[in-house]
Structure formats: C-alpha cells, structure tokens
Design a protein around this nucleic acid. Structure first.
Lengths: 253, 253
DNA sequence: CATTGACTCTAACGTTACGTTATGGTTTAT
DNA sequence: ATAAACCATAACGTAACGTTAGAGTCAATG
C-alpha cells in the first residue's frame, strides 16, 4: 500500500516540502514513483522516515542523520552520547545567558531605584524652593536673610557620609511608618517615633528648623501628589498618617 | 582617536567581516570614513558595538538588537524578560531531548541484553548439539535414537509461557547462585537448592534427563569459556561453584 | 465528457549571521 | 620603489525548510 506525499506528510505530521527536501538531499527517496512522477512511499520508507524524525526530534543535523541512517555500522550509541554531551553544553550556555539576563535586570532595577532617588533629590530641591516660597518670609523674619540660601547650600554640600546616614534614616522612617500605620493611631508611640525621626531627618538638610516649616512640609506631603505617591508607595495613606503624626508630635493639632 | 576595522575587530574579539556585516545591515555604520573609503570607528561607535555584542552574547537576533539599540523607547527590560522566557523554553526542550536520549540509550542497552539472551539461546542450541556430540552415543544407547532430536525439538517448540517460566527460573538460579556462593560451600542447603533448580531448568529443554548429561553440562560450564563467562558474570567463580554443587547434588563427587 | 477541486511536480528565491574566497586599491615600512 | 599588511566591494556557501509560482494529474461531479 503505497502512499503519496500528502498522505505521508499528514500521517507523520510534517510538511510536503520537508519530504521533497529529504528527497532532494537524498535522505529519503521513495522506492517507487508513478509514471507521472508522483512519489510513492512504501512501508519501509515510512519506517526509515520514523527513524529520521526521531533523530530530528533530538536536533540532529540532517547530515548526521544521513550518516547514522545509511551506515548501520555507525555507532548509534556513541552518536547519541556525543549528541547528549552537545546538548548539555548548549544547556549550560543557555543557563549562563539566563544568569546574565537576571543580573542585568537586577542592575537595571537598581538603576531605576537610583533614578527614583535622583528624582527624589530633585523633589528635595524643589521642596527647599517651595519651602522658601511659602515660609521664606517667615524664616527670613526670624532667622535672617541667609538662612534659606544656607539650607540649600547645606543640602548640596553635605558629605558623602552624612548623605548615607540621611538616606539610611529615610529608609528607616519608611519602614517604621509601615509599622506605625498598622496601629491606626497617629498618636501612638510608634507614630510619634516616626515623627521624631522625620524631624531628625529634616535637620540633615535644613540649616535651621522651625515647627512652622515642618508642619508646612507635612502638609505638602499630602498636597503634593509626588510626595504623596512617595510615601503612599510604602503604605497606602502613609502621607496623611505621617502628617497627622507630625501635627500631634508638634502639638499643633 | 578613530580606529580602522582590524583594530576594532581585534579590540573586541570579532572578525572584520562581522563589522562589515553590521555596516551592511545598518546595525553599526561608523560615523566617519577616509576619502579612500576606509571605515573609521569613533569611541561612540565602540560603545554602541559593546551594546550590540552584549545582546549578541545573549543570542538576540540582530534584528532585535537593532530595534533595541535604535529606539531607547524600546523597553529593554521587557525585551530581556521575553528573551529570558524564550531561553527557558529552549532549555526545557533540550532537557526533554536529553531525557529522550537517555531513555533510548537505556532501551538500546536493554536490546543488547536481549541480544545477549538471544546469543545465549544460540548457546543453548549449541549446548544441545555439543551435548549430543559428547553424550549422544550414551544417550542413544540408553534412550534410543530419537531422544537427542526430540530434545532439540522440544526446546524449539516450547510455548511462550513455558519459555517465560524457564527464563524466570534462570534468573532465580543466577540470583540464588550469588547467595549460595557466599556460603563458600557447594554442599550447603542453598547450593543444593541451586543444583535442584538447575535440574528443573534443564527439564524445560531436555526431552529426557540423565545424571550423566547433567554432569556433562556442568563440566561444560567450566570448560566452555562462553558458559563460564555467563555464570561468572553473576559471581566470579560461579561456574565452578555451580558445577561442584551439581556434582554433590547428583552424588557423583 | 468536460469541468473542478484537490493534489503533485519542479524551480527558485528568502531566511540567519556571518565565513570564505576573489579581485583590486591604499598605506606603511624598508 | 616595492613588498607586506590592510582596506574595500562583490558574491557564493551554509541549514532546513517556507513560500510562491507555473504547470501537470487524478478522481468525482454536473
């Protein structure tokens, strides 16, 4: 019972073109053909095809398959073992690539965090300006003209170590804020600790400290969506909670 | 400090052709070139090349690299994650292939074992012949002319079930032989059990049984290296031990 | 019986990322 | 000035088919 290309192709799930190709390169040439040139595959041809497809499944190049198929003397076991080795090598390389990608992604996240921090730095600059705009007069009245400028300068001129301490403190505040928030009470010890540390954190960048400025900043945290987002990132509603805690801490509620 | 192709190629460890190729497909066209048409790569070109090679290391197709490189808006992270996924899929497929190869190798070993058994079948055939040659006259004297031929016929005509029982018994004998051998005594109960089962095993293929033939076979186990190898495979010295056990069992020592 | 739809054939270009000549001009050291 | 080293473009080769394209074949249907 001889079969034509399509039948064979459908039978084993490959394309007609593939059969043509195998014929072209002499890998599998059907024993017989009709007078009109149609390829006719015998059962034996099918068996051979199965063999071929088996090795193909294993990613053997057709040339190798041809060798393996054509000479039974060819050591199939050795060929398989060799191929296996090759595959393991490939796998190793892929794993290496995945590792590299993971590292890169980590790195990129890191850079994005850096970028976020840089953005926040910009916020802080802006904060100083805003601060000045809103409370500038007041500050100037109380502490003289240079204070506002000094604040700015202090932040810019901060040493690397101080900067480190400051950012660490910043992290601590965010983490504490989370815990404090679970108490639900801005007057709780934890919340008050956060407010205190927030003051300490401010001292790093502010040349002078005033309750009014602190409150103003706290209000800004809620009003300015960028700051709100920053604190809400840690806890939803964190900005408001922090403001309330600060208000209580400063006795201005 | 502009560099010419070879210099760049050597610098980053790729071929000149590769640089030509990247120029051809518009992946990396040096900013400048001499009036005589020599490509001149700037530092910026080198940086770009590094990027390209990074993605190439990860098996990104050049087309993708071009996309990633040319539009910074293109989400590198997403591209990497996607690629990572692809690599994992590749790895999965490779692992599947390795598994298949392992199974196949197992199978092939199995077939070789089968082949070994078939070989042993041939041995048995030969055994019958040998048996006849050595003890033929004797057997013929005692049991008539047809006995030898009948033995042969019986083996060949054995039912599938009988054959199964026989080979199972064969395995049991080999396993028992191991245990018995540890006693070191061919007269031990265990060794005698082996001898008894060996007799039973013989009955499967022999049309008639005689002590003499059994002894003759036992001697052949030691004398014929092929049989010796077969029994020694299970225990070193197994052939001799089995013979001694049989001799004792038959009371012919 | 002719038409139609389903198949079949050969031929040839396209794909990927360069390697490998081949042919000829340019630069540089001797 | 000449050779060695380097540069350029052009074009074929590789692996395993996919994809038209043009044309012939076969079986069933109107």
């Amino acid at each position: 019972m001889k079969r034509k290309v399509k039948e064979v192709a459908d039978l084993v799930g490959i394309s007609v073109r593939t059969l043509h190709h195998y014929d072209e390169i002499g890998l599998l040439s059907p024993e017989e053909s009709t007078e009109s040139g149609y390829r006719l595959y015998s059962e034996d041809d099918l068996e051979l095809l199965q063999q071929i497809l088996f090795f193909r499944e294993l990613d053997f190049p057709l040339k190798k398959i041809k060798e393996v198929i054509n000479s039974p003397s060819f050591d199939r076991q050795e060929a398989l073992r060799l191929h296996r080795k090759m595959l393991l090598e490939k796998r190793r390389r892929i794993e290496q690539m995945v590792k590299t990608i993971d590292k890169t992604l980590q790195h990129m996240k890191g850079e994005i965090q850096m970028t976020d921090e840089e953005k926040f730095e910009v916020f802080k600059e802006k904060l100083i300006n805003d601060n000045e705009q809103k409370y500038g007069e007041e500050i100037r009245e109380k502490y003289g003209d240079d204070t506002a400028a000094a604040s700015n300068a202090k932040l810019r001129g901060m040493s690397q170590e101080d900067y480190q301490s400051m950012t660490n403190l910043e992290k601590e505040i965010l983490s504490l804020l989370q815990k404090a928030y679970t108490t639900g009470d801005p007057a709780s010890d934890l919340a008050q600790e956060v407010a205190a540390k927030h003051k300490a954190w401010l001292m790093y960048s502010w040349s002078s400290y005033s309750k009014e400025a602190h409150v103003g900043l706290a209000e800004m945290y809620v009003a300015d969506e960028r700051f709100a987002a920053y604190y809400d990132k840690s806890v939803k509603g964190g900005a408001k909670f922090l403001r309330d805690a600060i208000l209580i801490y400063l006795g201005m509620n």
